[in-house]
Design a binder for these strands. Sequence first.
DNA 1: TGATAATGTTATTGTCAATAACTATCCGCA
DNA 2: TGCGGATAGTTATTGACAATAACATTATCA
Lengths: 138, 138
Amino acid sequence: MNDVLRLRPGYALRRAANAMMSELARRLGTIDLRIAEASVLLLIDRREDVTASEIGRILDIQRANMVPLLGRLEAAGLIERRPIDGKSQAVLLTESGRRRRAQADAITTQFEDDLMARIDPAHRDHLIPALGALWRAD
Amino acid sequence: MNDVLRLRPGYALRRAANAMMSELARRLGTIDLRIAEASVLLLIDRREDVTASEIGRILDIQRANMVPLLGRLEAAGLIERRPIDGKSQAVLLTESGRRRRAQADAITTQFEDDLMARIDPAHRDHLIPALGALWRAD
DNA sequence: TGATAATGTTATTGTCAATAACTATCCGCA
DNA sequence: TGCGGATAGTTATTGACAATAACATTATCA
């Protein structure tokens, strides 16, 4: 590979994220979940009365993009919506959603163990702090 | 932010890459380049007779997706194509392409300096090796 | 020479993300 | 209490990057 790009942190970050996403998408595909869907399921476990907007704020997903996402989860019978007031609605897991969430949890946990195992122990513990600084700095 | 996701390396990687890409896209937008376009320009500098397929292999861009990408660069007058034989074509920078490449180089270099500056020095030097292990392990 | 591989292309699809515009509802405060 | 501004949910559209399948043409090499 060309040195012009190999050593650039931005490029390395992009490539690593792409490789990670495509492998994670493959694994989550076995339980019929997209990555964004799985992150919603993982988030709303044991939280009662989380609204769609709130999920979006936490995961940085635009309100507008939550609509089809939650629509798919609801169509798959994984979540239910219950009106809180005239304006907001709670999103909660169905029984089937809880089972699926457990599967997604197992898959992602295993996946991330596999990820970390590929990194030299000398570098391993620095990854999350370094990424955190990039992510939360704006 | 919720601990369920904050500490997951896959999620942190995805979020960091998203934040990075959106800021980089903004900066490259000032010289009318997309990220993928800039990486092509950065790659083909001073390489004569690189074919489209070869660029795609190095950058992991499908042959099919190189077509519109190079088409845009050519329409913008940044590259030229010259037939090597009946089947392959060399991609080379025009004079205007060389100037644009220099701008892109300056922007990305500055950008990545800014990125690295945000990371605690204790973690900084571990980022590229760690990302490299994730990217090149498949 | 003749099968096989490689190149460039068209067309289509998928995933995630961003923006604008709209309706309806809630909430704080004068 | 009523009003204005903020908030929730929605529709529709767009953009960037990536993946797949199919095809015609040309090169390669056994």
